[in-house]
């Protein structure tokens, strides 16, 4: 599997923090071929209950990072993963350990709203009737009350996304990975969904790692924004979001928000330019 390795980059591990981490990655690399290196020496740690947003130029390896944390891909040898303070030898051990929500809602068209929502817990082995009862109680919170017996093709894009989110929430794991969940929605729906997500998160207090292209979304939602470098990806900037919660929609016009946004934009701009450079900097 790990036939190729990226030219090693110095790891800037910060072992200092004594607080317990939910997830920590150290020197994480992933290469697909001698010339295609998606991640190179990425370090990252997440504390319980944190809402982390990840931004970066297109193709910076964000999705690769998520796939590894979800257990779907194995990183190169030498990468270190700790989950719930325990070392993880193979990423596949993480299968079924985190709640993963990919970019598209990927609802199963032959299942009703309620049956799509319970998919993950049903796979866990919960009886369908019990699972449905739990999900039914949760429907109003996700704005899906009364829609339990509809099929996905009868729903709007925003509703489908909420069904997918509900599926992710119902799969009660400590860490939720959301990969651009609102990317395909129109601006208005997206704003509504962001506020709603914050409400739900604050109520359930789950740890969320959230990928987005949208700098404002990253700031509005996150406790911390991670900016990734162009491919091969690593963390370029870790920006704590010093904005109070609960956040109101007009926060985006506050001077502090604009200051943070500028800082992020400069960092992303720098990386975007790199990825458009004539010679690819794929570690060679």
């Amino acid at each position: 599997m790990d036939m190729y390795t990226c030219d090693s980059m110095p790891s800037s591990r910060s072992e200092g923090s004594a607080r317990s981490k939910l997830l920590s990655l150290a020197g994480m690399s992933k290469s697909y071929s001698p010339t295609v290196c998606a991640l190179n020496g990425l370090d990252l740690s997440i504390e319980p209950g944190e809402f982390i947003t990840v931004v970066g130029p297109s193709g910076c390896g964000k999705s690769t990072l998520f796939n590894i944390v979800a257990g779907l891909e194995e990183p190169d040898a030498g990468s270190e993963i700790r989950f719930l303070n325990k070392p993880v030898n193979k990423a596949s051990e993480l299968l079924g350990q985190v709640s993963f929500m990919p970019q598209r809602d990927l609802l199963l068209p032959w299942r009703t709203v309620i049956d799509n929502a319970i998919l993950a817990i049903e796979l866990e082995g919960k009886r369908r009737a019990d699972a449905r009862r739990i999900a039914l109680d949760m429907l109003p919170e996700f704005g899906l009350a009364g829609f339990e017996n509809q099929y996905p093709n009868q729903l709007s894009g925003g509703m489908r996304q909420r069904v997918a989110l509900m599926r992710t929430f119902l799969f009660g794991r400590d860490l939720m990975l959301l990969d651009e969940p609102f990317g395909a929605l129109d601006a208005l729906t997206r704003t509504m969904m962001q506020r709603w997500l914050l409400d739900v998160w604050q109520k359930h207090r789950r740890t969320i790692m959230f990928i987005t292209h949208d700098v404002e979304e990253a700031l509005f939602l996150g406790d911390r924004v991670l900016v990734m470098t162009a491919r091969p990806g690593r963390i370029k900037l870790e920006l704590p979001v010093t904005l109070d919660r609960p956040r109101e929609p007009d926060i985006v016009t506050s001077p502090e928000f604009i200051r943070l946004k500028r800082e992020l934009l400069i960092a992303i701009e720098e990386e975007s330019r790199k990825s458009f450079a004539p010679t690819p900097s794929a570690g060679h």
């Binding site: 779907l72 299968l95 079924g96 049903e122 796979l123 866990e124």
Partner: peptide, 26 residues
């Protein structure tokens, strides 16, 4: 769709579950 397969695997689905819940209906 391989993305659907990935999703179900991330939920810890085994081969039998992948077959009966996803592949056959699809």
């Amino acid at each position: 769709d391989p993305r659907q397969v990935a999703l179900l695997r991330s939920f810890g689905a085994n081969a039998w579950q992948l077959l009966t819940r996803l592949r056959l209906p699809a």
